[in-house]
Simulated scan of single mutants.
Amino acid sequence: MTKQLANKMKHHCDTAPAKYDDLKVLFLNCTLNRTPVLSHTEGLIKVSQRIFEANGATTKIIRPVDYVIPAGLGLDMSKTPEWDRDDWPQIQKEIDACDILILCTSVWLGEKSSVCNRVLERMYGYTHNFNEKGQYRDYGKVGATLITGNEDGVKHCAMNILFSLSHIGYTVPPQADAGWMGEAGPGPSYMDEGSGGPENDFTNRNTTFLTWNTLHLARMLKDQGGIPAHGNQPDEWEAGCKAGFDSPEHKR
Results as ranks from 00 to 15, higher is better:
70 P>I: 06
71 A>S: 01
96 D>L: 15
72 G>R: 09
108 W>P: 00
83 W>F: 15
79 K>Y: 05
84 D>P: 07
90 Q>K: 15
68 V>E: 11
101 L>P: 02
70 P>G: 03
62 I>H: 00
108 W>Q: 05
93 K>R: 15
101 L>T: 04
105 T>L: 06
94 E>S: 09
103 L>K: 10
98 C>P: 08
85 R>N: 11
60 K>H: 09
100 I>F: 12
96 D>F: 11
77 M>H: 06
94 E>H: 06
107 V>E: 01
89 P>V: 06
89 P>D: 10
88 W>T: 03
95 I>F: 14
76 D>A: 02
82 E>S: 08
60 K>G: 01
77 M>T: 12
93 K>Q: 15
80 T>K: 07
59 T>W: 06
78 S>W: 09
87 D>V: 09
76 D>M: 02
70 P>C: 04
81 P>D: 09
72 G>W: 08
88 W>G: 08
76 D>E: 02
73 L>H: 01
61 I>C: 01
106 S>D: 08
77 M>D: 13
80 T>G: 10
82 E>G: 01
87 D>F: 10
92 Q>H: 14
85 R>F: 03
89 P>A: 06
95 I>T: 10
61 I>W: 03
63 R>D: 00
91 I>N: 12
108 W>C: 04
81 P>C: 12
94 E>I: 02
63 R>Q: 00
